[in-house]
Design a protein around this nucleic acid. Sequence first.
DNA 1: CAGGATCCCACGGGATACTG
DNA 2: CAGTATCCCGTGGGATCCTG
Lengths: 114, 114
Amino acid sequence: MEVLDQVSGKWSIGILVAAAHGPVRFTELERTVNGISRRMLTLTLRRLERDGLLVRKVYPTVPPKVEYTATSAARELFGPLTALTEWAERHRTTIAQARHVYDLENAEKGSAAG
Amino acid sequence: MEVLDQVSGKWSIGILVAAAHGPVRFTELERTVNGISRRMLTLTLRRLERDGLLVRKVYPTVPPKVEYTATSAARELFGPLTALTEWAERHRTTIAQARHVYDLENAEKGSAAG
DNA sequence: CAGGATCCCACGGGATACTG
DNA sequence: CAGTATCCCGTGGGATCCTG
Protein backbone atom coordinates (compact mmCIF):
# COMPACT_ATOMS: atom_id res chain seq x y z
CA MET A 1 0.00 0.00 0.00
CA GLU A 2 1.60 3.16 -1.22
CA VAL A 3 -0.10 5.50 1.21
CA LEU A 4 1.16 3.47 4.15
CA ASP A 5 4.75 3.94 3.10
CA GLN A 6 4.96 7.12 5.11
CA VAL A 7 3.53 5.46 8.18
CA SER A 8 6.24 2.94 7.73
CA GLY A 9 9.73 4.30 8.05
CA LYS A 10 11.40 4.02 11.40
CA TRP A 11 10.08 7.18 13.00
CA SER A 12 6.71 8.26 11.62
CA ILE A 13 4.61 6.38 14.13
CA GLY A 14 6.63 7.57 17.09
CA ILE A 15 6.35 11.17 15.98
CA LEU A 16 2.64 10.89 15.32
CA VAL A 17 1.82 9.46 18.73
CA ALA A 18 4.03 12.10 20.31
CA ALA A 19 1.90 14.71 18.59
CA ALA A 20 -1.33 12.99 19.54
CA HIS A 21 -2.02 15.02 22.67
CA GLY A 22 -1.61 18.47 21.23
CA PRO A 23 0.99 20.65 19.54
CA VAL A 24 4.62 19.71 20.08
CA ARG A 25 7.81 21.60 19.46
CA PHE A 26 10.88 20.41 17.62
CA THR A 27 13.15 19.97 20.61
CA GLU A 28 10.33 18.39 22.54
CA LEU A 29 10.05 15.74 19.83
CA GLU A 30 13.78 15.28 19.86
CA ARG A 31 13.55 14.30 23.51
CA THR A 32 10.28 12.38 23.29
CA VAL A 33 10.94 10.21 20.26
CA ASN A 34 13.69 8.09 21.65
CA GLY A 35 16.85 7.64 19.62
CA ILE A 36 15.87 9.85 16.72
CA SER A 37 18.52 12.06 15.12
CA ARG A 38 18.05 15.70 14.27
CA ARG A 39 18.23 14.88 10.62
CA MET A 40 15.61 12.14 10.65
CA LEU A 41 13.34 14.21 12.82
CA THR A 42 13.42 17.00 10.26
CA LEU A 43 13.00 14.69 7.29
CA THR A 44 10.15 12.74 8.82
CA LEU A 45 8.39 15.90 9.95
CA ARG A 46 8.62 17.25 6.40
CA ARG A 47 7.14 14.09 4.97
CA LEU A 48 4.30 13.99 7.48
CA GLU A 49 3.59 17.64 6.80
CA ARG A 50 3.62 17.04 3.07
CA ASP A 51 1.14 14.20 3.45
CA GLY A 52 -1.16 16.41 5.45
CA LEU A 53 -0.75 14.51 8.71
CA LEU A 54 0.94 17.31 10.58
CA VAL A 55 0.58 21.08 10.42
CA ARG A 56 3.71 23.13 10.93
CA LYS A 57 3.24 26.48 12.56
CA VAL A 58 6.15 28.91 12.81
CA TYR A 59 6.23 31.70 15.38
CA PRO A 60 8.58 34.38 14.06
CA THR A 61 10.05 35.06 17.46
CA VAL A 62 13.59 34.95 18.71
CA PRO A 63 14.52 32.31 19.54
CA PRO A 64 12.36 30.64 16.91
CA LYS A 65 9.40 28.50 17.92
CA VAL A 66 7.80 25.86 15.71
CA GLU A 67 4.81 23.77 16.61
CA TYR A 68 3.60 20.59 14.98
CA THR A 69 -0.02 19.58 15.28
CA ALA A 70 -1.72 16.39 14.17
CA THR A 71 -4.43 16.91 11.57
CA SER A 72 -7.79 15.17 11.67
CA ALA A 73 -6.51 12.62 9.17
CA ALA A 74 -3.66 11.81 11.54
CA ARG A 75 -5.98 11.61 14.51
CA GLU A 76 -8.07 9.03 12.69
CA LEU A 77 -4.90 7.00 12.45
CA PHE A 78 -4.43 6.72 16.18
CA GLY A 79 -7.11 4.07 16.63
CA PRO A 80 -5.67 1.59 14.12
CA LEU A 81 -2.17 2.48 15.24
CA THR A 82 -2.98 1.74 18.85
CA ALA A 83 -4.55 -1.58 17.87
CA LEU A 84 -1.37 -2.42 16.01
CA THR A 85 1.01 -1.55 18.82
CA GLU A 86 -1.17 -3.42 21.29
CA TRP A 87 -0.98 -6.46 19.06
CA ALA A 88 2.78 -6.09 18.96
CA GLU A 89 2.86 -5.85 22.74
CA ARG A 90 0.70 -8.94 23.21
CA HIS A 91 2.76 -11.03 20.82
CA ARG A 92 6.21 -9.75 21.59
CA THR A 93 7.38 -12.68 23.65
CA THR A 94 5.58 -15.19 21.43
CA ILE A 95 7.38 -13.81 18.40
CA ALA A 96 10.71 -13.77 20.20
CA GLN A 97 10.24 -17.44 21.07
CA ALA A 98 9.20 -18.31 17.54
CA ARG A 99 12.37 -16.70 16.24
CA HIS A 100 14.46 -18.57 18.75
CA VAL A 101 12.94 -21.92 17.83
CA TYR A 102 13.28 -21.19 14.13
CA ASP A 103 16.92 -20.24 14.50
CA LEU A 104 17.69 -23.36 16.48
CA GLU A 105 16.04 -25.61 13.93
CA ASN A 106 17.88 -23.97 11.10
CA ALA A 107 21.24 -23.96 12.82
CA GLU A 108 21.58 -27.71 12.32
CA LYS A 109 21.57 -27.49 8.57
CA GLY A 110 21.39 -31.23 8.03
CA SER A 111 18.42 -31.65 10.36
CA ALA A 112 16.09 -34.40 9.20
CA ALA A 113 12.94 -32.74 10.55
CA GLY A 114 13.84 -34.35 13.85
CA MET B 1 8.56 -0.67 17.57
CA GLU B 2 10.88 -3.51 16.83
CA VAL B 3 8.22 -6.15 16.46
CA LEU B 4 6.46 -4.11 13.82
CA ASP B 5 9.55 -4.03 11.64
CA GLN B 6 8.51 -7.25 9.97
CA VAL B 7 5.02 -5.97 9.34
CA SER B 8 6.69 -3.05 7.72
CA GLY B 9 8.78 -3.91 4.71
CA LYS B 10 7.18 -3.53 1.35
CA TRP B 11 5.51 -6.92 1.10
CA SER B 12 4.65 -8.43 4.49
CA ILE B 13 1.17 -6.96 4.69
CA GLY B 14 0.25 -7.99 1.18
CA ILE B 15 1.39 -11.53 1.78
CA LEU B 16 -0.42 -11.76 5.09
CA VAL B 17 -3.76 -10.61 3.74
CA ALA B 18 -3.32 -12.97 0.80
CA ALA B 19 -2.96 -15.79 3.32
CA ALA B 20 -5.91 -14.61 5.38
CA HIS B 21 -8.51 -16.84 3.77
CA GLY B 22 -6.72 -20.13 4.07
CA PRO B 23 -3.52 -21.82 2.90
CA VAL B 24 -1.84 -20.38 -0.18
CA ARG B 25 0.84 -21.77 -2.44
CA PHE B 26 4.01 -20.06 -3.55
CA THR B 27 3.02 -19.41 -7.15
CA GLU B 28 -0.41 -18.34 -6.02
CA LEU B 29 1.20 -15.65 -3.88
CA GLU B 30 3.43 -14.64 -6.75
CA ARG B 31 0.31 -13.86 -8.78
CA THR B 32 -1.75 -12.44 -5.92
CA VAL B 33 0.75 -10.08 -4.35
CA ASN B 34 1.10 -7.64 -7.16
CA GLY B 35 4.56 -6.66 -8.32
CA ILE B 36 6.51 -8.86 -5.94
CA SER B 37 9.64 -10.59 -7.19
CA ARG B 38 10.44 -14.25 -6.62
CA ARG B 39 13.31 -13.26 -4.40
CA MET B 40 11.36 -10.93 -2.14
CA LEU B 41 8.52 -13.39 -1.93
CA THR B 42 10.90 -16.04 -0.62
CA LEU B 43 12.68 -13.69 1.77
CA THR B 44 9.50 -12.22 3.19
CA LEU B 45 7.92 -15.65 3.58
CA ARG B 46 10.98 -16.80 5.50
CA ARG B 47 10.80 -13.83 7.81
CA LEU B 48 7.10 -14.26 8.45
CA GLU B 49 7.65 -17.94 9.12
CA ARG B 50 10.50 -17.17 11.48
CA ASP B 51 8.32 -14.73 13.40
CA GLY B 52 5.62 -17.35 13.75
CA LEU B 53 3.11 -15.56 11.57
CA LEU B 54 3.03 -18.15 8.84
CA VAL B 55 3.40 -21.92 8.85
CA ARG B 56 5.16 -23.51 5.94
CA LYS B 57 4.02 -26.98 4.96
CA VAL B 58 5.90 -28.93 2.32
CA TYR B 59 4.31 -31.77 0.41
CA PRO B 60 7.11 -34.03 -0.83
CA THR B 61 5.45 -34.61 -4.17
CA VAL B 62 6.68 -34.03 -7.67
CA PRO B 63 6.28 -31.30 -8.67
CA PRO B 64 6.76 -29.87 -5.18
CA LYS B 65 3.90 -28.25 -3.34
CA VAL B 66 4.30 -25.81 -0.48
CA GLU B 67 1.50 -24.23 1.47
CA TYR B 68 1.63 -21.19 3.72
CA THR B 69 -0.95 -20.75 6.44
CA ALA B 70 -1.53 -17.81 8.75
CA THR B 71 -1.09 -18.60 12.43
CA SER B 72 -3.45 -17.38 15.13
CA ALA B 73 -1.04 -14.55 15.92
CA ALA B 74 -1.23 -13.45 12.30
CA ARG B 75 -5.01 -13.75 12.26
CA GLU B 76 -5.18 -11.41 15.22
CA LEU B 77 -3.33 -8.93 13.07
CA PHE B 78 -5.97 -8.82 10.40
CA GLY B 79 -8.28 -6.60 12.40
CA PRO B 80 -5.77 -3.79 13.01
CA LEU B 81 -4.38 -4.28 9.53
CA THR B 82 -7.79 -3.90 7.96
CA ALA B 83 -8.42 -0.78 10.00
CA LEU B 84 -5.14 0.60 8.74
CA THR B 85 -5.75 -0.15 5.07
CA GLU B 86 -9.27 1.24 5.32
CA TRP B 87 -7.82 4.42 6.74
CA ALA B 88 -5.38 4.55 3.85
CA GLU B 89 -8.23 4.04 1.42
CA ARG B 90 -10.35 6.76 2.98
CA HIS B 91 -7.53 9.29 2.95
CA ARG B 92 -5.82 8.38 -0.29
CA THR B 93 -7.12 11.29 -2.33
CA THR B 94 -6.85 13.68 0.60
CA ILE B 95 -3.21 12.78 1.00
CA ALA B 96 -2.54 13.02 -2.70
CA GLN B 97 -4.01 16.53 -2.71
CA ALA B 98 -2.03 17.52 0.37
CA ARG B 99 1.14 16.44 -1.39
CA HIS B 100 0.21 18.34 -4.50
CA VAL B 101 -0.46 21.54 -2.60
CA TYR B 102 2.70 21.15 -0.57
CA ASP B 103 4.80 20.62 -3.68
CA LEU B 104 3.29 23.65 -5.38
CA GLU B 105 3.93 25.88 -2.41
CA ASN B 106 7.49 24.71 -2.13
CA ALA B 107 8.24 24.97 -5.83
CA GLU B 108 8.37 28.75 -5.60
CA LYS B 109 11.24 28.79 -3.20
CA GLY B 110 11.01 32.49 -2.56
CA SER B 111 7.32 32.41 -1.73
CA ALA B 112 6.40 34.88 0.97
CA ALA B 113 3.69 32.72 2.52
CA GLY B 114 1.29 33.69 -0.25
C1' DC C 1 6.73 -25.86 -8.70
C1' DA C 2 9.44 -23.59 -5.31
C1' DG C 3 13.09 -22.00 -4.36
C1' DG C 4 18.76 -20.52 -3.74
C1' DA C 5 22.96 -17.58 -5.36
C1' DT C 6 24.92 -13.57 -7.08
C1' DC C 7 25.23 -8.81 -8.68
C1' DC C 8 24.17 -4.28 -8.26
C1' DC C 9 21.71 -0.01 -7.25
C1' DA C 10 18.67 3.23 -4.45
C1' DC C 11 17.53 4.87 -0.37
C1' DG C 12 16.99 5.09 4.68
C1' DG C 13 19.34 6.66 8.19
C1' DG C 14 23.51 7.76 11.54
C1' DA C 15 27.48 11.24 12.56
C1' DT C 16 29.12 15.48 12.23
C1' DA C 17 29.55 20.34 11.17
C1' DC C 18 27.44 24.76 9.94
C1' DT C 19 23.46 28.54 10.19
C1' DG C 20 19.50 32.15 10.64
C1' DC D 1 15.66 26.98 18.95
C1' DA D 2 15.10 24.77 14.72
C1' DG D 3 16.83 23.64 11.35
C1' DT D 4 20.36 22.57 6.59
C1' DA D 5 24.42 20.27 4.23
C1' DT D 6 27.66 16.63 3.52
C1' DC D 7 29.64 12.17 4.02
C1' DC D 8 29.20 7.48 4.41
C1' DC D 9 27.39 2.88 5.26
C1' DG D 10 23.90 -1.01 5.71
C1' DT D 11 20.22 -3.15 3.76
C1' DG D 12 15.90 -3.51 1.10
C1' DG D 13 14.89 -4.92 -3.08
C1' DG D 14 15.06 -5.68 -8.46
C1' DA D 15 17.26 -8.64 -12.37
C1' DT D 16 19.10 -12.59 -13.75
C1' DC D 17 20.67 -17.24 -13.72
C1' DC D 18 20.88 -21.90 -11.59
C1' DT D 19 18.61 -26.21 -9.13
C1' DG D 20 16.13 -30.29 -6.73
